[in-house]
Design a protein around this nucleic acid. Structure first.
Lengths: 133, 133
DNA sequence: GCTTGACCTAGAGTTAACTATAGGGATTAT
DNA sequence: ATAATCCCTATAGTTAACTCTAGGTCAAGC
């Protein structure tokens, strides 16, 4: 079973432009072509793209993802590097989660702040000593 | 107590360039100046910048943050808008947390995948039917 | 056999958020 | 009183990750 670029774009919720851009940047060396040059995506290619999307969502830049893809095609000799990379990513995502939880706390405070102010009809209920908001 | 732009930059872990950029974009209309034009930051200004950083960390673009700052200087008549904005941000951060947790799961899977492969000395231990990685 | 629509490449354009430079003024240390 | 160090504005440059356009190929349907 193979898929066209527009089918893959729809499935992964990104544009055809973006997919071709990823390919140009070396993120998809495994995607095969018809004799006339049209890309043919296999199921395993879509799985690979999901990992790429996962790495992207951790904030990893495309050039670094390319490095990982290269390691993958070099075989078992790069297993250690790849493992280390995922451990690093894990640490980064843990930090992001912590950060996002702090952000959530502040947002929740602000929600309460404005709920109270709205009930009172004025922000003055919070005796902020000439604060900005 | 007032602070110079470089003191604030150090405190908030951003550059002097970035602070001046925020000011130019209308994020800091409340910061006062000396007669000769030098910015003087008050403690309340630093608190405001922390909220701005919080909003930025949720992915809110600077132009939208500017809109919020404008609402703030319009007083109580914009309380409802500001409350709604924080509720929206809360929903967005909740979605981001969910997304990031999914990402973490995938990363954890990959960590285990590579740990096992590394122990076996080869990726072949995972009988991936001609997968990419 | 020709039109339609999906595919292709190369390369230019876009956007956000800085980042840096040039040129100049004010304050502090010696 | 002069050199260093901070501050300022205006404006140009950078970067990543697309996004779009132009010009062309190819397979299917009428």
């Amino acid at each position: 079973m193979t898929y066209s670029i527009s089918e893959v774009a729809k499935e992964l919720d990104l544009t055809v432009y973006a997919l071709r851009y990823y390919d140009k940047e070396g993120l998809m060396p495994f995607v095969e072509r018809t004799p006339s040059g049209t890309r043919l995506f296999k199921d395993s290619d879509i799985e690979a793209l999901k990992i790429i999307q996962c790495l992207k969502s951790t904030g990893m830049p495309i050039k670094e993802i390319k490095g990982f893809i290269e390691w993958c095609s070099e075989g078992d000799s790069t297993l250690q590097q790849r493992y280390n990379m995922f451990l690093e990513r894990k640490a980064i995502v843990e930090a992001q989660l912590e950060e996002l939880n702090k952000t959530m706390e502040i947002i929740n405070h602000k929600c309460n702040y404005y709920k109270t102010a709205l009930n009172a009809g004025t922000e003055d209920i919070h005796n902020n000593k000439i604060g900005n908001f």
